[in-house]
Design a protein around this nucleic acid. Structure first.
Length: 304
DNA sequence: GTGTTTGTTATCAA
DNA sequence: CTTGATAACAAACA
């Protein structure tokens, strides 16, 4: 389950290896995985380079080199697809639950299992040029929830504005902003934390971990949190996210980084997946129950 | 065959 | 209109 720390780990690794590389072909193995027709993705991507990789919440955004407008002699460009306002300059990749992005350089000796495998949904091939070695980026997704999609600058802007709240670890994620998001809300705090429009990047694992660290029960109505608790919660979220990035994310089931390696945060989880074990704080048993349709792991004794 | 896993959205009810 | 609750999606595993 890639959440903010896992996606950020992938972003950093891919940035180091992919920037400046030129796309030479695109192979869509599962049409469902591409939000647009495969021919459109191919046509738009082939020949362009990746100049920047951005992350917003759990969404990865590959920025492409701008397309040069064609000034054919006497041929008037009728399609506006090459103008700066409407050009599809961004490739968005969401891994959802089981997505993986694994990059194999042409000169890699070998990694984990052979790729492509039965869960490979798309392959982006890069050419060797200059200092770049060339290689292939495999998008694997067992459950096919993830997607690839092209967007223009304005589409991207709208999408980010409408669907993503402040990022943890940034000044936008202020006490005032969090307080406002909780104010007068009757919804339980756990599902509220999972709402990307209020805070971008938390998923089931880190929401449970942050609530445990802040000693707040996942079923508390969000609006009932005291100012002290809100402050604690904000600190807990930032601390957990920061630490999880440092440890390159959590591998519980499916997640691996861009080299196919597992995250190292698993052993530092305090409550997620640890139902029945002792709470590291009070040594009482950790519970698990469904809250808003999701598994919630918590210590009933110290999370009030 | 059944229940469980979760990121996100669609749908419905209050 | 807003808010919250729930189902749905997809695929594999115990």
């Amino acid at each position: 389950m890639p959440e903010l720390p896992e996606v950020e780990t992938i972003r950093r690794d891919l940035s180091a290896r992919l920037l400046g590389q030129k796309i030479t072909s695109v192979n869509i193995l599962s049409p469902k995985t591409a939000s647009q027709p495969a021919v459109f993705l191919k046509k738009t991507l082939v020949g362009r380079r990746i100049i920047k990789i951005i992350r917003r919440g759990k969404l990865l955004i590959f920025q492409l080199t701008p397309v040069k407008k064609k000034f054919g002699a006497g041929k008037k460009e009728i399609s506006s697809s090459a103008t700066s306002l409407t050009a599809f300059d961004y490739l968005l990749i969401h891994l959802k639950m089981t997505g993986q992005l694994i990059y194999i350089s042409d000169f890699a000796v070998s990694v984990g299992g052979a790729l492509p495998n039965k869960y490979t949904r798309a392959i982006i091939v890069f050419a060797a040029s200059g200092r770049a070695l060339g290689g292939r980026l495999f998008f694997n997704d067992l459950r096919k929830f993830g997607y690839l999609r092209l967007a223009t600058a304005s589409e991207l802007k709208t999408l980010l504005n409408n669907n993503y709240g402040p990022e943890p670890l940034t000044s936008n994620f202020s006490l005032a902003v969090l307080g406002n998001a909780l104010k007068n809300k009757k919804i339980k705090i756990k599902p509220l934390l999972l709402n990307q429009k209020l805070i971008a990047g938390l998923g089931n694992i880190y929401a449970d971990e942050a609530l445990w660290l802040a000693r707040i029960n996942p079923e508390r109505p969000a609006g009932s949190l005291k100012p002290r608790e809100i402050k604690k919660l904000r600190q807990a979220i930032n601390r957990i996210i920061k630490q999880a990035i440092k440890y390159r994310g959590t591998t519980f089931n499916n997640y691996v980084d861009s080299r196919g390696r597992r995250g190292n945060f698993y052993n530092l989880l305090k409550v997620y997946g640890r139902q029945g074990e002792k709470c590291p704080n009070c040594h009482g048993p950790i519970s698990k129950k469904k809250v808003a349709g999701r598994g919630a792991h918590y210590c009933p004794r110290c999370q009030k």
